[in-house]
Design a protein around this nucleic acid. Sequence first.
DNA 1: CCGATGCTGTCTAAGTTCTGTCCAGGAAAA
DNA 2: TTTTCCTGGACAGAACTTAGACAGCATCGG
Lengths: 271, 271
Amino acid sequence: MFRIGELARRTETSTDLLRVWERRYGLLQPGRTQGGFRLYDDSDVERVRRMQAGLARGLAAAEAAAAALEHDGAGPVELLPALLSFDAERAETILDELLQRLSVESVLHDAVAPTLRELGDGWAKGDVSVAQEHFAANLLRGRLLGLARRWDEGLGPRALLACPPRELHDLPLVIFGLALRRRGWRVLFLGADTPFEVVEETVRAERPDVVVLASARARPSLADPALARIAESTRLVLAGRWPDAEVEAERLEGDPVELAASLEAPERASA
Amino acid sequence: MFRIGELARRTETSTDLLRVWERRYGLLQPGRTQGGFRLYDDSDVERVRRMQAGLARGLAAAEAAAAALEHDGAGPVELLPALLSFDAERAETILDELLQRLSVESVLHDAVAPTLRELGDGWAKGDVSVAQEHFAANLLRGRLLGLARRWDEGLGPRALLACPPRELHDLPLVIFGLALRRRGWRVLFLGADTPFEVVEETVRAERPDVVVLASARARPSLADPALARIAESTRLVLAGRWPDAEVEAERLEGDPVELAASLEAPERASA
DNA sequence: CCGATGCTGTCTAAGTTCTGTCCAGGAAAA
DNA sequence: TTTTCCTGGACAGAACTTAGACAGCATCGG
């Protein structure tokens, strides 16, 4: 347990703001010392983070607080165990319920993406078997692609999404695509293990406004000349883990949903 | 939920234009904050994008708006054929997509309930086989109950929902329950084929604010003395088809989602 | 071809709400 | 003693509200 100054430091906010979020939106309900000082724990850090994530996605403070509160508890806490125990029905039910209660964006940001991260960490540590990872990935992929139908329709700017050669983990890319779609983009999805030449051809044929290549675990080579040619003609974004090398491209790392929000900013600046 | 500035950002329009589209064509019907600020959700982004697509195709604004609004009703058209052809995957995908695009309420009201009605009519005419009806009902029930988890939690007034003896069609009741839940009610669901004595016991034990008995095809007897005893102690609502008889109860018929809305009115009047 | 009419997006103005920050006076913790 | 924290109110700027005005453009009748 720690006091408000420590919470402010850990979440990079001010004590004033934390108190006012408590007063106005009931975001936090800290315990008190004998003398009346507020006492917080780790779950409060999480809640503040969710609030901040909501603000970053463009919600008003009141809405962000409501979303952060509503989301309390559920989410990844329930979803991961269901997936690890191969309980498809329970996992589907949890997803159903989350999708009903929360927006697609919050489900992706607060439940699916964190679950995926924990899955990856568990796999790296050896706690999660290949079978478990495959089961989880396939169930989630099925569900997410169900949300992704017709995502090349409409008017917005167009993004071409692909994973580089040898990268088989396309789920973060799917999440990224869904988040973009929510924000009005059209999405051309090439998916896992896509040769750079294929990307290049598609760029020539379809003329997307931006090309996003996402690499989660593989460390693809940047030496391919096709990559350089893509970068010359189009805005190129490399998301995830890539080697350092001289390619004319933006680099992004972190949560796919937040990346999707940030991809928008340069568009606005130019408009 | 987000405010008008964020909607403008996401759809790359101006707040002015969004307000004027609302005023002139009723394109959007946002909720409001206490203080009167407009609040939008994901489905509004979709609607604006459809409007923009219409404009891009050369429609006049008024017509584009009409087209965008009309498209809201698509979906149910697709759902029934998928169910009748035993195509679980397609049906699930359609539901996924609808739930993403629209609110739970509109999915229930505009897609699930009409599909159920057509299914019932088809069965009555002999166009729909028992197998088809079972398949459809079970798929929908699974999906809807997935949305219905923890629907007895919270603070709101409490409704006890059941079908009378011999009535096996509980789906309208599930829809009704979900719609109530969306409106803040707590729901106690006893489901199909529930003896009146069981309802009576539960009423005594749980003291719900209202008891709703729904009968779709069976024509249950009202002679049971348990029914009269329930009516004496609690507000009793008989939904669907019931014989005429002297029981102290409100009678409701029609779309489950609309019934849920109408159930609320007396509560408010008393508040 | 002209003028009248209607549609549509933008702009204005005066007022309100929302939200982060700041402050004063006092008390608790280190 | 020094630092941290408490409450409650005040405040400024950003964001939003309504209602109407208006200019650019297309369409229509003459």
